[in-house]
Amino acid sequence: MALRFTVTRILPSLALFLALIAGAIACDLALHRAGLAWVGRYGGIAGSILLAVSFLYSARKRKLLSRGSPKVLLKVHETLGWVGSLLVLVHGGIHFNALVPWLALLAMVVVVASGLTGRFLLEDARASLRGRAEGMKKAGLSPAEIERELLGVSLLVDTMKQWRKVHLPLTMFFFGLVLVHVVATLLFWRW
């Protein structure tokens, strides 16, 4: 049971996180070997744009957007969040030039970890609800009764609400640092 739980629930999220770190190191290494380290600079721009686009999901959830399937946008949020983070990690590399961009990079990694934790919690809560529904079905409850019963179970809502209390401030911490880094870069950039 524990093994199954680990393989089906924990490993996918953990693998995504480790793949992000390993992918960034591999890309950075390849760029350096090819003498194309300068590409990383533009990876930062592309990554930031992808991360910004991934926030369409957040906008949809807060009804700032009226169109788009939340389910699809969540997938887009997860995918672009991962790819964008990879590009930004390659952009940052293993360099500690200044506090603001370095903290931004660190915050991004924490936000990704937090996002993957949220993904895990969501999957876990959904699986738990599915288990309850199956139990009720075996107990002879009708689909309408099951739905009514589950509406009263606030497990999913509560879990995600608690998680958001951590994820959103972390995201804002990351966003604030990125904002200062980008504005500083643009101010001193040759246009």
């Binding site: 030039n97 200044a98 506090l99 603001v100 966003f175 604030g176 904002l179 200062v180 880094h181």
Partner: peptide, 19 residues
Amino acid sequence: TVAAAAGAALVFPYHAITP
């Protein structure tokens, strides 16, 4: 976050934002 980071960039830019 923005206030702290911007403040750091203004007070000690070399340590805060140098590329």
